[in-house]
Design a protein around this nucleic acid. Structure first.
Lengths: 209, 209
DNA sequence: TCCATAAATGAGAGTATTCTCATATTTGAG
DNA sequence: CTCAAATATGAGAATACTCTCATTTATGGA
């Protein structure tokens, strides 16, 4: 949610942590600009205003810093959404809220979006973490009789793919207030709600900022 | 559908065409192994059993050969599916057939799958071609009163994303005969069919080989 | 078969990137 | 403030990759 996320986390800690965090923040902005494959070590140290060699005092290679950055961001986004949903009981409402908040958060932090989208492709383990949350909500919906699906990894893959499409579309074009309701509706349909109920469950979504 | 697809197309033509095709086939297998970003010129010429310099007699750079290969494969797959569907009138049946044939073809040719999946990310124009076919079938379904959606690019993105998830899953694990029906059902649900109708429309799918 | 032309070759120049390490600088505990 | 330890620096060695071109080899029409 902030261009200096990692530096904020390490403010007040020793110099070592602060430099490390500055590199992580720099890595995020470089990945946002050039993608994970296009990001070079020197791009990262330059963005951080440091000498090239400094990188190797903190990370062994590019993979390590990118993985660390992606996990850090995924953790923060999950934490935030999870907290916001604490009191929501209805499974459909939980899915809709999580999806729309996820899109809104990443729309406000495009660098994070780039890292998460790229990371989802390059770091398969990262997806699995996300799945824990999602699986819980979908199973809840099945138990509540609202969803009609067999909950398996393939289903979760499909839901996550739809969310990813929405985030990508949001990043690409100008903000379209109908985008989030559209994808939420799609997800609920996918989960077995009727088009009418799905629409109703999404109708209340405030268009993100 | 064949490891020597491009060479077959150019059999009997001049040496120039045959060498070019050998490079294209080699590029496909390298991309399947290392991805588009990981594929190096020398990997391609080595796989083709040629000297490094030969590459530059036929292509200006990596992008050009990869684009050519990806388009060639996309064209062949589209052509084949299109032909197989000629006589199908019902839009739901068309969507289901196209999806399941697409998955079956790529399951039988994993190298092609890798190129198309990677290409869909790296070559945005390639997606647009695919969309022409898809959009037609979905609009037909709306006209037939079977689908209940607004047909826009974002919807097509979602459908394609679901198909991509299925192909990826099919490549990863052992063949699961329920995978194709599952994703076809998801797509029909997404397009606004009720879960019951969607299931019915997918029930006849023969599990791919 | 002959040979002009087309194509293939691969050494190496050019460029980009990673990673190391001896040295310089900074830090913060005492 | 002092100094030993921790950290940062950046030149350059090592590696990886792209692309060129003078030369060799192969092709196919006459």
């Amino acid at each position: 949610m902030h261009d200096r996320h990692f530096q904020e986390l390490s403010a007040g800690r020793g110099k070592r942590e602060r430099t490390r965090s500055a590199l992580l923040d720099a890595a995020v902005s470089v990945v946002a600009e050039k993608g994970m494959d296009g990001a070079k070590i020197t791009d990262i140290t330059t963005a951080a205003g440091m000498a090239n060699g400094t990188f190797y005092n903190h990370f062994n290679d590019k993979d390590e810093i990118l993985r660390t950055a992606a996990y850090g961001i995924a953790f923060e986004v999950s934490r935030q959404i999870d907290a916001e949903m604490e009191e929501i009981e209805d499974a459909a409402a939980r899915v809709v809220t999580a999806t729309s908040r996820f899109i809104a958060i990443l729309a406000a932090a495009p660098d994070w979006a780039a890292v998460l989208l790229d990371g989802a492709d390059h770091l398969p383990e990262m997806r699995k973490d996300l799945y824990k949350y999602l699986r819980g909500d979908i199973e809840r919906g099945v138990a509540q009789g609202k969803f009609d699906v067999e909950v398996n990894t393939f289903l979760l893959d499909q839901v996550v793919a739809l969310v990813a499409v929405a985030v990508r579309a949001r990043l690409r074009g100008k903000p379209d207030p109908s985008l989030t309701p559209q994808v939420c509706e799609s997800i609920l349909r996918l989960l077995g709600m009727s088009p009418a109920r799905a629409r109703k469950a999404c109708s209340h979504i405030a268009s993100p900022r």
